[in-house]
Design a binder for these strands. Sequence first.
DNA 1: ATCTATTTGTACGTATGTATT
DNA 2: AAATACATACGTACAAATAGA
Lengths: 255, 255
Amino acid sequence: MPPAITRSEKPGRGLSRPAQVADKIKEWVVEDGLNRGDRLPGEAELMAQFGMAKGTIREAMRILEAQGLIKTRTGPGGGSFVHEVSKERARALLGNYFYFKNLTIADIYQLRSVLEPELAASLAGRLDEDALKALRANIAEFDTPATDAEEERARHIVSLRFHAMLAAQSSNPLLAFLIDFMACMLSDLTVYRRLFDPPNTELWQRGRDYQMRLLEALRDGDGAAARRIMSEHMSTAWWLMEMQEAEMERRFLPE
Amino acid sequence: MPPAITRSEKPGRGLSRPAQVADKIKEWVVEDGLNRGDRLPGEAELMAQFGMAKGTIREAMRILEAQGLIKTRTGPGGGSFVHEVSKERARALLGNYFYFKNLTIADIYQLRSVLEPELAASLAGRLDEDALKALRANIAEFDTPATDAEEERARHIVSLRFHAMLAAQSSNPLLAFLIDFMACMLSDLTVYRRLFDPPNTELWQRGRDYQMRLLEALRDGDGAAARRIMSEHMSTAWWLMEMQEAEMERRFLPE
DNA sequence: ATCTATTTGTACGTATGTATT
DNA sequence: AAATACATACGTACAAATAGA
């Protein structure tokens, strides 16, 4: 990838030097078709190729690292390596975008109510035994009704994990990411204004039934049923959140 | 926000020092409820508060900047300022996530085919005259059929902008972002393997009709019709892309 | 287990650039 | 035009981590 640049080749279109270096390295990655794990030139080499000081190069690497595109190790054989952006990192970065946007629960459920059924339909008959087993185990985790508000919250988070697990089975990376993103936003950032006290046992029982019936439909390859069940599930979940006057907390997702 | 930390307060849970500083500053932003435009301490002050050298602090600021959370200005009254992550930045960062995931056109259309109709339905009767005028103007931009492949591609991009403009009208920030993201991915990264030659005039005429009928339904506040029209529109667009054997190019989105 | 070589990580001092007043 | 206040960049020295002998 040597055909680098000497410092003032381009007048620097408003970008700081580290940003220019970062962009150039991204170009290398695409043009040379670099893959995960491939090594980038070391600091010394980059300093030489770009004719810039150590600090400048390091800032550039930090930019790439912050975006999740590289990982850096010290020691012999160390250096910077091309890295596939992790789901967690992408989640956090996208979450930052919504920090000032005061996203509501209703906004998320508007999407969930169409995306989750689509996911369910596309997964019918395509889950292997392991996946089904893991999903059943997840349901089994909350087979007793909650006794207090805190426990009810725990139930909620487990049931959201159910959806994240389903998402992970999708062959559509975009769909998978979004379902996961929304589940994570809901479990991390949701606060409840008016928790049912005592918790509404019958209501959570219905949620559990939805998930079990969904699993059957998925196992039997009945896409239409899976879609319908998930659709109803989302409607009641949405309604439940509204009842509890749930809201989103403003904070940054952990990366 | 002074209650900072001296360097070895936390043992540094595997994170590099710049990353720790960046996280701490994010904490300040949430805890002190800082808003867009609010000023963060200058380099000198941060150096003092964290007991770290200039380079370390600068790397931290570059991390925040790379994530779109701050902007930095030189000169008197300059410094680092809290910044709302821009749509463009968020788009690029999320796009990075899919770089190694080889997302297909079909993946995107699977989502478009449910999200675009949902958007259309939720927008019915809620567009003001200005928005409607801008949308009509966009349609008018390609009122003549394409004569060659390159021109056809231009038509396609303009029609994708139509959807981005619609998205911008949504009161749901998540829905708005996603529609925009997908439209951008398609217009930036799509290459055509087998372009119709000569271009299929009748087909693009149908696409144009869909958009015009959609606008009528939106103006008249007929959500059901808007949903149905958009749904058909997406089906034919999907089919068209498959016909052309369109594929996604691997590259990084411009920030 | 210790040393050694390699490569990133941190610190500091100075000089330059840039925008405001 | 000049002074000021800030970020930006450079160069060097040394510290820390890791792999291999």
